[in-house]
Design a protein around this nucleic acid. Structure first.
Length: 626
RNA sequence: GCCCCGAUAGCUCAGUGGCCAGAGCAACGGCUUUGUAAGCCGUAGGUCGCGGGUUCAAAUCCCGCCCGGGGCUCCA
């Protein structure tokens, strides 16, 4: 990484006279094109380089201040001057630093002026002739200091001191320390994890091996960390999950939309929102514009809602997008396999509600939706996740019954995080958290009640009296990130394997549901006919036509987690009765073809279907891993 | 991002200063025509992550970077 430094040319002057002539960049500050004159001052020609931040600005002011004391002057002009460097910061960042310098200087009691940023200016300067009159300063960032721009929300979160409780479905709320966790071991692990007392063992989470061995997904060294490649099988699984969640959300009544993945930093609503969201962004430069990649669908949907017109009669208004992708520039040390990515697919569903009453009702409908998505999609029941509910003190006092009814819906004790003060844009939030084999918790489904953004984005509806009002906004991801769902299923499968159960994916998600295995190449054609018939019923079927021994083919099908294996030989062809190896049930059953097809179809009824795009014959398939 | 650890054939790994760097699996070729978790023989495959340095000599020691992992921290 290049070393960044703030460069200042410091000139002790008799006077300076300057006049803005012409804007140099689109993002120039507003100002009058009037001639200005200042006398007996120190002029700071300042150049902000890439990576400079407010800490550097503060340090620069400190250094300038000590010079001022020497020179016995207390007046400065901060003059943006790009020509001192070839490694300039972007305009937005530079202006931030200059403003920070101005602020710190004023706070330090210095009479401070600043010329407008982004203008081509004419100036005349008279410099004093003493040895200290002309100095140049290079301010380096302090070692170890936070160099990146961090949102206020992220900083605020660091200072949060919440209290922790366990809330039971019967409405009893007890402090975490005095809760009896017996029978709720996962909740205990989760609570400790959240309150941060655990030390995890040094280990790679097991899903990483699985995601590669099963040819689902893999790291892509050619990209940025946390941006994955998806092999055909993984792409199928991911796509099916996406289809399923989208279908459930449509049934719930949301309108599906699509919005851009990148946004203008300069947009006023967005700038304010960025500061309230605890996440880091990817930024990219395009021409003179500075853009950031979305980290959720909020921007696009809110801007859309801002331009839409609707009244209380249309509320709650539900808007949905499957973001492919959302981007968060997570710190590199936080990225692990599919648990946490920098580019991820997130179903994001907002509901605009007239008032808190409506929001609360809607909230319960949506939590039911989330539970269903996990239950039917991932086959995750309430034992597979722990619930956290987070809210402010005030909200709890005023909405106790509602929160208890939410917990009753969850049907198990939940972890409560309660804040004295509201730091975020929401007043209430819950998530379902999955605990992996290293006892790390990751949120899947989540929902929140947002009371700030309707105003920030100026989203309004017309109420009964014809007046414009800001709705409340619910933010929900019914499944959480799709990649994270895959992670959770793999981790769960591994856990089952440790318990000597069969590791397996839900049948509807298995890339290969049925594998037909001819005993020798004499039976390949017969096997093909059977495979055709099964696939005609929308069951993913392939054919192991390789010249290998049966037991080897069976072994490979087992390690690929294929649900059913049909061995085809003389016996089957003559009798018409199939030998079906049911992997999950760990048994070999004899049955008619149509009977078998019926059994499989029944198990995947109502779930989305897609064909696997790998060649049916294994001999024609590439190997992506191993 | 910081601290610590790692990287050798497509995969899993052996090799810690000294001849042309090894094994198993996979791939490819041949034999075998196979009945429910690994048949036999052979062939090919390596810029030892990348770049620099130390040395008569570097996969091996040193520095920087990339990628991965763990921790701190944080989230969907």
């Amino acid at each position: 990484m290049e070393v960044q430094r703030l460069r200042i040319l410091q000139l002790h002057s008799n006077f300076i006279e300057y006049q803005p002539i012409k804007k140099e960049i689109a993002t120039a500050e507003k100002c009058e094109k009037k001639k200005q004159q200042l006398e007996e001052l120190v002029v700071l020609f300042t150049c902000v380089e890439k990576g400079d931040d407010e800490a550097v600005a503060r340090k620069a002011v400190e250094e300038v201040k000590s010079s001022l004391q020497q020179l016995k002057v207390n007046k400065v002009l901060i003059y943006p001057y790009a020509h001192l460097s070839s490694n300039l910061a972007k305009p937005v960042a530079a202006l931030k630093v200059l403003k920070a310098m101005e602020k710190h200087a004023k706070e330090a009691g210095i009479e401070t002026y600043r010329t407008p940023f982004g203008w081509c200016k004419q100036f005349s300067i008279s410099i004093k002739g003493h040895p200290l009159a002309e100095q140049s300063k290079v301010v380096l960032p302090t070692e170890g200091e936070e160099k990146e721009v961090v949102s206020k929300a992220l900083k605020a979160e660091e200072k949060l001191k919440p209290s922790w409780f366990i809330l039971q479905p019967d409405g009893k709320m007890v402090p975490v320390e005095s809760f009896n966790f017996s029978g709720h071991e996962n909740l205990e692990k989760f609570a400790r994890n959240e309150i941060k007392k655990v030390r995890a063992v040094q280990q790679v989470p097991p899903h990483v091996k699985l995601m590669r061995r099963l040819e689902i997904a893999d790291y892509e060294p050619g990209s940025d960390p946390g941006n994955f490649r998806w092999y055909p099988k993984g792409s199928l699984i991911k796509s099916l999950l996406e289809q399923f969640v989208t279908q459930k959300v449509a049934e719930y009544g949301a309108m599906e939309v699509e919005t851009p993945i990148m946004y203008d930093f300069q947009h006023p609503s967005l700038a304010k929102y960025l500061d309230r969201f605890p996440a880091r962004q990817y930024v990219l430069e395009s021409g003179e514009k500075e853009l950031f990649l979305r980290f959720s669908a909020c921007f696009g949907q809110f801007l859309m809602a801002h331009d839409a017109q609707f009244s209380y009669r249309q509320l709650p208004l539900r808007i949905y997008e499957l973001t492919k992708y959302s981007f968060r520039r997570e710190k590199s040390g936080e990225l692990v396999g599919l648990r946490r990515l920098r580019a991820f697919t997130m179903p994001d569903c907002h509901a605009l509600c007239a008032d808190l009453d409506q929001a609360k009702k809607e909230f319960l409908v949506r939590s039911e939706l989330c539970r269903e998505v996990l239950k039917n999609g991932l086959e995750f029941g309430k034992d597979d996740y722990e619930v956290a509910i987070r809210f402010t003190n005030d909200f709890f006092e005023e909405n106790k019954d509602f929160i208890v009814s939410l917990v009753q819906q969850m049907d198990k004790p939940v972890l409560v995080e309660m804040w004295e003060e509201r730091f975020f844009y929401f007043i209430l939030k819950w998530e379902f958290n999955f605990l992996d084999n290293l006892n790390k918790a990751s949120a899947l489904s989540t929902d929140q009640i947002d009371i700030e953004n309707a105003e920030r984005y100026d989203i309004t509806y017309v109420d009964e009296k014809g007046e414009r009002r800001h709705p409340l906004i619910l933010h929900c991801s019914p499944s959480g990130a799709i990649e994270r769902c895959v992670y959770a299923m793999l981790e769960k499968a591994y856990r089952e394997q440790q318990k000597e159960n069969v590791p397996i994916l839900p049948l509807w998600l298995s890339p290969v549901q049925v594998r037909v295995i001819p005993v020798s190449d004499k039976f390949i054609e017969d096997a093909e006919k059977i495979a055709n018939e099964i696939e005609r019923h929308r069951i993913r079927t392939d054919l192991d036509d390789r010249p290998l021994m049966i037991r080897k083919k069976i072994r490979e099908a087992e390690t690929e987690w294929i649900n059913y294996m049909l061995v085809i030989g003389q016996k089957e062809i003559e009798s018409g009765i199939l030998s079906v190896r049911d992997r999950k049930a760990r048994e070999i059953k004899e049955m008619q073809l149509q009977e078998f097809i019926g059994e499989v179809k029944k198990k995947v009824e109502g779930m989305p279907f897609k064909l696997l795009t790998l060649p049916r014959r294994l001999s024609a398939r590439p190997r992506f891993f191993g």
